[in-house]
């Protein structure tokens, strides 16, 4: 979340530490502790995922991945991501625009609502949809009559995923858009640009790195969501199992290496996400520049 903001705070603390210098052993103790903690709780499990995945050798690894049910899970996961991420982008841009550029009643309510998925347990998020659209749900009968299946089917999984990933793009864009204000947009208008041209040539480029960052975070969450999806999916093998559900099912069926083979794809996705995130932050930083002004050549006519 909020890449720029976070990075600035980190820089700030580094600077302030220089003033009140700690003795070296405190410094090394803290660094050592942080490293050890990350190693034990993050790095070790990650390495173990790959170790377990390849425990029975490469052919078995491929075999597990190429199993029709695993392929179906991968396909479903990609489909859900392909539905929820674009919707999230549209919603995120609209919400961030509204919040950053307009003053209206209920603005703080909207901001709070956007954060809701962060504070609600995913299981509850899933259950909400079951209560709404399930067989015994409010719209259950109406949907049954029309032969529309939402719960225990792809639409339900997509809905739950959208609910969970709701804040990612908006949360990323709001601080950026707020910081930029609407001067650039107004400048574009005075130069004759239409609303659409202004959005396309001015607004979108100026938030592009933040937007991309939000998209990859949203994507990794959309692919990795377990709780909410688990409630609405119904676990129909080969039909409504996403990758995380498939991992759990395989593991419960004592197929450890196969479970880890699928899990390794998710871990790979996580690593890739981190890599892209780091790159985007670097680009953003470089473009907005530690903007030291260039020397001013002599003015004309002065």
């Amino acid at each position: 979340m909020a890449g720029i903001v976070k990075r600035r705070t980190v820089v700030g603390t580094q600077k302030s530490q220089r003033g009140s210098e700690e003795s070296p052993w405190v410094k090394w103790l803290l660094i050592g502790f942080a490293m050890l903690f990350c190693g034990v709780f993050l790095l070790l499990p990650l390495i173990n995922v790959f170790a377990q995945a390849f425990a029975k050798g490469l052919p078995h690894y491929w075999g597990s991945l190429k199993h029709p049910d695993s392929l179906a899970a991968i396909r479903l996961t990609l489909l859900v991501a392909a539905i929820s991420v674009p919707l999230n982008v549209v919603f995120g841009l609209a919400a961030a625009w509204a919040i950053a550029k307009f003053e209206f009643k209920g603005k703080s309510l909207l901001i709070t609502l956007i954060d809701l998925p962060f504070s609600v347990s995913p299981v509850v998020a899933g259950l909400v949809f079951v209560v709404l659209f399930g067989m015994q749900g409010y719209f259950g009968e109406w949907l049954m009559d029309r032969n529309i299946r939402i719960i225990f089917a792809v639409p339900g999984i997509a809905m739950a995923t959208i609910f969970i990933t709701f804040p990612f793009v908006a949360r990323e864009l709001i601080p950026i858009m707020q910081a930029q204000g609407s001067d650039q947009e107004q400048a574009a208008l005075t130069l004759g640009a239409s609303g659409w041209q202004t959005f396309w040539y001015v607004t979108l480029p100026s938030v592009r790195w933040g937007l991309l960052y939000g998209v990859i975070l949203c994507n990794s969450r959309a692919m990795g969501e377990f709780g909410a999806v688990s409630v609405v999916s119904g676990h129909i093998t080969g039909h409504t199992d996403t990758m995380p559900l498939r991992v759990e099912k395989l593991y419960n069926e004592y197929q450890g290496p196969a479970a880890f083979a699928v899990a390794s794809l998710l871990a790979l996705l996580a690593l890739l996400t981190l890599l892209i995130k780091t790159y985007l932050e670097w680009r953003q930083h470089r473009e907005e520049g530690a903007s030291q002004a260039a020397p001013d050549p002599t003015l004309p006519n002065a």
Binding site: D183, A187, V202, P205, S206, R208
Partner: peptide, 17 residues
Amino acid sequence: QQRNIGFVFQGYALFKT
């Protein structure tokens, strides 16, 4: 857009990208 005016904003509002 159609007033044919040039406007210079207080903070200049240059397109930074």
